[in-house]
């Protein structure tokens, strides 16, 4: 039995300890804002926060979740400055990758209040956007940084 918190709520899980957090969130906890894109930590669609830092939930087994605090997009109080910037710059196309991008960006801005283009590229290159919204993502992160500064 693993105990942990998701978006501030106490949870426990006694199923297959190998189950990735991603599928727990989606199929068990009914929190579908976290997306499946690759299952191999290659695309970032499944990004959530574990104790405040971005992780790939698709390769984080439930056995490693015990005692930690998980935050998903559903747990981000809207409108976070990053979400606001995303809307103002009109970043999304299909939108599927964007919750992962936003979770990654929030975590980046927590660690680096004023990231350079280079910092952003480094932090965000694990997150694929097949629709190709990268330049808007970069602009939105700069804008959110300004707003929170």
């Amino acid at each position: 039995m693993v105990r942990f918190k998701v978006n501030g709520k106490e949870r426990s899980f006694d199923g297959d300890p190998e189950m990735p957090l991603l599928w727990y969130l989606r199929d068990v906890a009914s929190l579908p804002g976290t997306k499946f894109g690759c299952g191999q930590a290659l695309c970032g669609a499944c990004t959530v926060h574990q104790n405040g830092s971005a992780i790939r939930s698709c390769t984080t087994p439930m056995s490693e979740v015990g005692g930690s605090e998980i935050t998903t997009i559903e747990g981000i109080p809207a409108m976070h400055p990053v979400q606001k910037a995303w809307m103002e710059i009109r970043v999304p196309q299909c939108g599927y990758c964007q919750t992962g991008q936003i979770m990654q960006a929030i975590s980046l801005l927590k660690e680096n209040k004023n990231p350079s283009d280079q910092d952003i590229d480094t932090a965000m290159s694990g997150n694929i956007c097949r629709c190709g919204t990268y330049q808007r993502i970069r602009a939105a992160i700069h804008q959110a940084a300004k707003e929170t500064a």
């Binding site: 579908p32 804002g33 997009i73 919750t99 936003i102």
Partner: peptide
């Protein structure tokens, strides 16, 4: 003009095919 679903997308509420469910479904 901006996308009708913009707000739902950035808040994780947009429903994609991956998010569709039916009561009693199996995988």
């Amino acid at each position: 003009n901006s996308l009708f679903d913009l707000r739902d997308i950035v808040t994780g509420k947009a429903v994609f095919g991956m998010d569709a469910t039916m009561p009693g479904m199996v995988f």
